[in-house]
């Protein structure tokens, strides 16, 4: 019984979580266009993917949006975390609450509310609408990643800097940012992941002129099974995996600095 709860049960849950993903990855290398029977190893789906110029454009769009949104979100997230940690200002508690609410809000609610905003202000759906939406989506996650690290730092470090005559900006640029750099990098990586994978919000705020990867995946999945989809999903899965692991490593590193 003890062994069951300690080892067998968790293994089943991990199997449940990873088996479907593994199947997708394995079949992305299967040399058969429809059948599920293993017909030998091939990379042809990946080649087809890379020769599909439409696909490459879409991927490039996603990466550009991802980089920009992650950079904006991690910058704004960092100053949000710093403001919450260091200052008292109007609406501070509200801001705390708002970040929490933004994290738990279903994406569809965010998506349509932004769609309403864009249509009310005549922002065309495309690059800018996506960038602003993705940035907004990522800010609370970035802010919380940085905030949870900033609180683990010794507060007297900031007092010491102040005592030695550092202005707020110097404290920010010479003390906080260098000390929190790993956490900021982690926030960036996680934001990039979120942006790269976001389907629901993007679904509402994207326009025909600027297609992005997650929506392309959705269209492919919905319309029918081209085996390339396995290859594309595999690449995205591995991309996410690397980003998440890198983010965790960065956070671990920061823990050491904070000691």
């Amino acid at each position: 019984m003890k062994k069951f709860t300690k080892q067998i049960y968790p293994s089943f849950v991990y199997l449940f979580l990873y088996l479907p993903i593994l199947i997708v990855i394995i079949f992305s290398f299967n040399d058969a266009s429809r059948s599920l029977i293993w017909k030998g190893f091939t990379l042809k789906w990946y080649f087809e993917l890379f020769h599909d110029s439409g696909m490459l454009t879409v991927a490039a769009h996603s990466i550009i949006i991802g980089i920009l949104a992650a950079s904006l979100a991690s910058s704004i997230g960092t100053i949000t975390a710093v403001s919450l940690f260091r200052y008292r200002f109007f609406g501070k508690n509200l801001l705390h609450g708002l970040l929490f609410v933004m994290i738990v809000t279903p994406e569809i609610v965010i998506g349509i509310s932004l769609l309403l905003l864009y249509s009310a202000t005549n922002v065309p759906l495309g690059f800018w609408s996506l960038l602003l939406a993705h940035t907004t989506l990522c800010i609370p996650f970035a802010a919380i990643t940085v905030y949870s690290r900033i609180t683990s730092l010794d507060k007297s470090i900031f007092e010491a800097a102040r005592d030695l005559g550092a202005s707020d900006f110097v404290i920010f640029s010479k003390i906080i940012v260098p000390l929190l750099l790993p956490a900021i990098v982690a926030a960036w990586l996680l934001s990039f992941t979120l942006s790269l994978d976001d389907v629901i919000t993007s679904y509402f705020v994207s326009g025909p002129g600027f297609a992005i990867l997650p929506l392309k995946v959705y269209a492919m999945v919905r319309l029918g099974i081209k085996p390339e989809i396995n290859a594309l999903c595999t690449l995205l899965l591995i991309g996410t995996l690397l980003l998440v692991v890198a983010a965790q490593v960065a956070l671990k590193k920061n823990e050491k600095v904070g000691e």
Partner: peptide
């Protein structure tokens, strides 16, 4: 605090962990 011309030594020392000894001392 920065205009009072005093300095403080903290219980936890509050050294800047990412700076060298020299940089720490030169900071002020």
């Amino acid at each position: 605090p920065e205009h009072r011309h005093l300095n403080m030594v903290f219980q936890s020392y509050a050294l800047f962990p990412h700076m060298t000894v020299f940089e720490n001392i030169a900071f002020g």
